[in-house]
Design a protein around this nucleic acid. Structure first.
Lengths: 74, 74
DNA sequence: GTGTGACTAAGAGTCCGTT
DNA sequence: AAACGGACTCTTAGTCACA
């Protein structure tokens, strides 16, 4: 499927981490100072993230960016 | 200059890997089908890479993207 | 609380030539 | 072989109203 891209797998990994934290997209987006609509598109795998954005999310999740990639299978 | 950013550390990591392969920027850029001038700016830490570009380079280096981030200290 | 389309600004990415 | 600059195109970052 066209959904088996790195960006979509990262979106899944990010969502799993956020849900494990037990907070909403809106609250998490607020926490990392990112717009909730934009953050939503990332979880849905619609965004080809830049390093800066990837790091911002990883910091919010409390893990290194490399770990996020690893959990996304890359 | 604030060179201690993720993108600059990744540039250093990429350069180290490429030089370990014993090939030039130009040859490596050709190999991964990327323009030599643009690739050069990446090694110099001037670019905030996207996931697609990061993966392209990692594949060319024969390692997973997560490993590249790890070698960049993130 | 989350998803979507439409939108703008900034920067990613390409290509040229020159140093 | 590598760095730099300009000029260009296309996409990401970021926001909004509405579903």
């Amino acid at each position: 499927m066209g959904t088996d891209t790195l960006q979509s797998r990262i979106g899944v990994a990010i969502r799993a981490r956020r849900e494990a934290m037990g907070i909403s997209q809106e609250d998490f987006a607020d926490h990392i100072e990112m717009h909730r609509a934009y953050y939503g598109t990332i979880e849905r795998g619609r965004r080809n993230l830049t390093l800066v954005t990837l790091e911002k999310i990883a910091v919010g999740l409390g893990i290194p960016p490399s770990r996020l990639l690893k959990e996304a299978g890359s």
